[in-house]
Design a protein around this nucleic acid. Sequence first.
DNA 1: CAAATATAATAGTATTGCTATCATTCTAAG
DNA 2: CTTAGAATGATAGCAATACTATTATATTTG
Lengths: 241, 241
Amino acid sequence: MIAILLYLQPNILIMKNLLSVLKIAVPDKIFIKDPETSDLGKKIIEHSIYLIDEVGFESFTFKKLGLKIGSNESSIYRYFESKHKLLLYLTSWYWAWLEYQLVIETFSISDAKEKLEKAILIATRTVEEDSNFSHINETLLYKIIVNESSKSFLTKNVQEENKSGYFEVYKRLVTRIEEMILSIKPSYPFALSLSSTIIEGSLHQHFLQEHFPSITNCGQEITPTTFYIDLVSKTLGYTNE
Amino acid sequence: MIAILLYLQPNILIMKNLLSVLKIAVPDKIFIKDPETSDLGKKIIEHSIYLIDEVGFESFTFKKLGLKIGSNESSIYRYFESKHKLLLYLTSWYWAWLEYQLVIETFSISDAKEKLEKAILIATRTVEEDSNFSHINETLLYKIIVNESSKSFLTKNVQEENKSGYFEVYKRLVTRIEEMILSIKPSYPFALSLSSTIIEGSLHQHFLQEHFPSITNCGQEITPTTFYIDLVSKTLGYTNE
DNA sequence: CAAATATAATAGTATTGCTATCATTCTAAG
DNA sequence: CTTAGAATGATAGCAATACTATTATATTTG
């Protein structure tokens, strides 16, 4: 089933259909009860995105979220053990969604360079259009990823949470791009570091673009995508410049 | 005075002397009372580094710090309005210290490439030796920078705090490296982004090395310095490989 | 229809992130 | 040497946070 669908042209309509069959898979240790399995769960996810975007992660509380969705704080605790776990859920969902795009949009590209550049495009572009095929607003979620996602791993418990598999999706994504880099230049000794630099670095450039425009070239003309495609092509030595 | 000192060979002994004359300058709006002006102030800085390293920034409180230094919570509030301001102080101090190293250690280098590579080395190397010439343990502070510094700007108030000048030192550092890049290749259109990528990216690689070794090449053999020197030389097209 | 399951309501608790007030100690100028 | 001012300490208090626990009420499902 999945293989058949993957041969199709990737466009938003097809993605819509695909996602009605496929489910974005988030490591299930992250939640107590899968929010996808109930109306309340979906409302929690949907409105947590609105609320975190609105007030920021530090000021976000389950009590406020309960108020927003006309539900009770204690009910939210039946889905997520803490707001930190909810953030982990959102970030994992985002990375899984990105991986999914990466796979379908590069699947049929045979040229290694073209494939990598497509992957860089997907990983570094601004998510501007909400696909509207679920309760998740990807545009706002992307803003949260730019502004808050680092907080999901910059904690005293990373090691532990890493062992629990909470970051598997993210790591797999880095590995996928690493493979694409290596298929262009197998002798390049920093493929993992370059891959992780593209992914985290582009979030950082997006952040700078919004809050510290004086220390980035990204703006109207130049995008993080432009910057990273140039960087990678030169680093791997396949530029025609 | 400063100019005279800058002609000297940079080594730890001279730095020690230099720093007894020069003071690392942190934007003074960050604190209520300059912690450098009193014993209590210095103790606050010294032990905040130990405590944040020990328990992490989220669990760090002024009450706990007060206990550690045998002082009172309320006294600490006379120096810093909040723990967030204290983190801003520590990060600003670190960036100022790094800028200072950058300036003295590259001052007398006339070759543009050599100068830039020295700068990259300084900006990306692990701080392993505590210089011991002040109450600030640079080794531990560096660990805090790797693990917590992003939290100083990933907040809802960045814009405002940026306007207040809290990030001036950091931005100046990015600009300094940008200039070095441009002096090698004036036509390179992404010098600011490359500079900010080196600085933030190397912290990220250090973080990965410690917590997510499977998605970085940095480890025993390869360091963030190796990776970034290779990246930059290829990107600017001056590699001899 | 009964039993199980999900949700809501309420209460409670330790801790956080402060502010405010007042008391004490130290320090430096007259 | 004293004395006023500055710095520090002690104590109290407060609203909010980040939960846990218990009980009650819907809702679903077999």
